[in-house]
Design a binder for these strands. Structure first.
Length: 569
RNA sequence: GACUCGGUAGCUCAGCUGUACAGAGCAACGGCCUUCUAAGCCGUCGGUCAGGCGUUCGAAUCGCCUCCGAGUCGCCA
């Protein structure tokens, strides 16, 4: 709401400056950091030079312009503090605008339509087959899932793609290790754990005998050329891994439109290589085929000297396939920071091939999960399994329920929802690009800025609404909104849509997470100060309106982030 | 070595398209459950925004340099 007013004021002010003073300087319209400085503030410093008059006179002139805008019916006062013009709005007027806005959009609060008729592909999760689902893949999974929800709310059609890491030299390694050191029985018994063991074992052996690396490459080359024996092992490993991943996805409530992994593109790479050749981009270098990307970027390796393909080759094939199949507006890759160079190269190659949609490739990067300050390594068997972390969170949340609310029905189910959501929220609340140190203690913390705090707030409201007769009519007693803490809450309610928009444009779920924390905190402050279920009917109904909106937004926001909503806890 | 990203309270982080006294949570300490769920609320404590120089009316925010950490840099993905 405030954002709307700000934008309107901004454009009217710039126009007025141009018309009346022939001044074309970008005007700043912002929200002051402190409540006693009003709702909207215009610093006039940047205008002083253009006016070439003393600050005091400029302030005066700008203030008059502000008072003449169409928004003046909203203004309670327009005060001057040094070089700042601070506008205080009429609280009741803002509050009723917020409520009216909410009613219009009540079936899909916070939604907008700027993505209408456009498709976005999101490539996320994409675990490597035959390796346990680690904490590292959690990030891609939940960031991608949340972004899908957020962008969907902005009107986009979303294609969720799990680009499984089901191909590549790593399969040569696993197949080699399986043939030489593995047993069918052991893999059948405990597929992923066993395959991981073999993978780690391979690297240990390869350290002593570097020959193994080239043997693995040979196996992969043959696999790529459809060797039936390797193919059947490959599909067995893939199937078993996928089974285990599906359990994780079910727990996280995550789903995909496509599970076409790298192997899916095996028969689509020849055309890519042919096209690169035809466009004279492919050159032979040290026996391999590369695309030279100029001075700023290292060359892209498209084909190994033994003729087999690489990661980027498959990503090129996948990109073309997606463009042809979905005609995407953007293609997002929710992949870690360490692959920044890879996506720069991908973009550049596509650009050199003459496709303008190279600009629509977006690497939605995220920070690594570190252990002892270093990247975790599957090769050394040093990973933390996601399922263990989730189980830990769930069992801890069950402990709390037993302690705090022993008579609660359906404890296990609620504990599951609280625990898993806590893990999800813990990840999404921070800016995605930052690395973070793996810390189980932090991940399963349930107090303060956490998922359970949001769920708890929603549950508190449930409890009150359940005890009252309430219908959302929009008829309220405006005088309550004059109180500062209530007004703050109303302003925050009114900014939900703006936050979603910003979060979508920046691919930043953390903006929504922080917003929800703020909303919950404002509500809890109010809860501590004011009794809701009071005698006076009009006052009670007014308060219930606010609670209803807060709960609707909390639930909607948590849902966007991929968290679970609960009734009681 | 080159490139990229980061260094803000004891810890985890927000702010970083510049402008008014740098904000949360956790931890510590002190209050608040015979009235709506205390996974909560209120308060206290805590910061040379890594360091230096520069640009600017104004810098945590922009530029340069130094230090520290992480990641990447042709046959892994």
């Amino acid at each position: 709401m405030i954002e709307k007013i700000k934008r309107q004021l901004h454009s009217e002010l710039e126009r007025a400056l141009k018309v009346q003073f022939s001044i074309e300087v970008p005007v700043i319209v912002e929200e002051p950091k402190r409540a006693n400085q009003g709702d909207i503030s215009v610093p006039v410093f940047p205008l002083v030079k253009a006016f070439s008059k003393p600050l005091v006179e400029v302030v005066d002139a700008v203030r008059s312009l502000i008072l003449e805008t169409s928004l003046n019916e909203y203004f309670e006062s327009v005060d001057v503090f040094g070089g700042f013009i601070n506008i205080t709005l009429k609280k009741q007027k803002v509050a009723s605008a917020v409520i009216a806005d909410f009613m219009i959009n009540s079936d899909n609060i916070g939604s907008c339509a700027f993505g209408k008729d456009k498709t976005i592909c999101i490539d996320y999760s994409s675990p490597n087959i035959a390796k346990p689902f680690s904490i590292g893949h959690l990030r891609s999974t939940i960031i991608g899932h949340a972004l899908g929800n957020i962008l969907e709310k902005c009107g986009y059609k979303i294609i969720r793609i799990n680009h499984l890491g089901d191909f590549g030299t790593q399969f040569g390694k696993i197949i080699y290790a399986y043939i030489h050191y593995g047993s069918e029985e052991a893999v059948k018994k405990n597929p992923i754990a066993e395959l991981e063991k073999l993978y780690v074992l391979f690297h240990e052996k390869a350290k002593k005998d570097p020959e193994l690396e080239s043997k693995a490459r040979e196996i992969f080359r043959d696999l790529e050329q459809n060797d039936p024996k390797y193919q059947s092992l490959w599909s067995w490993f893939r199937e078993e891994s996928l089974k285990e991943y599906m359990q994780v996805y079910k727990k996280l409530n995550v789903n995909f439109d496509s599970y076409d992994g790298e192997a899916f593109y095996n028969d689509k790479m020849k055309t890519v290589i042919d096209e690169l050749k035809a466009k004279a981009l492919l050159v032979q270098d040290e026996g391999a085929m590369i695309v030279d990307l100029g001075a700023e970027l290292p060359p892209a390796l498209i084909q190994k000297s033994d003729g087999s393909t690489l990661y980027i080759t498959r990503d090129l094939a996948a990109l073309f396939y997606r463009k042809a199949t979905y005609d995407f507006h953007k293609c997002l890759y929710v992949v870690g920071n360490e692959q920044k160079l890879h996506f720069e190269q991908l973009k550049r190659v596509v650009g050199l091939m003459g496709y303008p949609y190279s600009e629509d490739i977006v690497h939605v990067n995220f920070g690594l999960v570190l252990q002892d300050g270093k990247k975790m390594s599957t090769r050394k068997g040093k990973t933390v399994k996601l399922i263990d972390v989730l189980d830990e969170a769930v069992s801890l949340s069950l402990d709390y329920i037993v302690e705090k609310n022993p008579d609660l029905p359906g404890k296990e189910e609620i504990a599951e929802k609280v625990g898993v959501s806590a893990i999800i929220f813990n990840d999404l609340k921070n800016y995605r690009g930052n690395d973070f140190e793996f810390n189980l203690q932090d991940m399963v913390n349930f107090f303060g800025q956490t998922g359970p705090y949001l769920q708890y707030t929603s549950v508190r409201i449930n409890s009150i609404l359940a005890q009252a007769e309430f219908q959302f009519t929009g008829k309220v007693d405006g005088s309550w909104f004059e109180k500062d803490h209530v007004y703050e809450l109303m302003k925050t309610i009114g900014s939900y849509g703006e936050i979603i928009e910003k979060s979508a444009l920046e691919y930043a779920p953390n903006l929504i997470a922080k917003y929800l924390l703020n909303l919950a905190s404002l509500f809890n402050t109010l809860y501590g100060k004011d009794r809701i279920l009071v005698e006076d009917i009009e006052e009670k109904q007014t308060k219930l309106h606010v609670l209803y909106m807060v709960r609707a937004i909390l639930n909607d926001g948590m849902n966007l982030l991929g968290m679970q909503i609960i009734e009681r806890m």
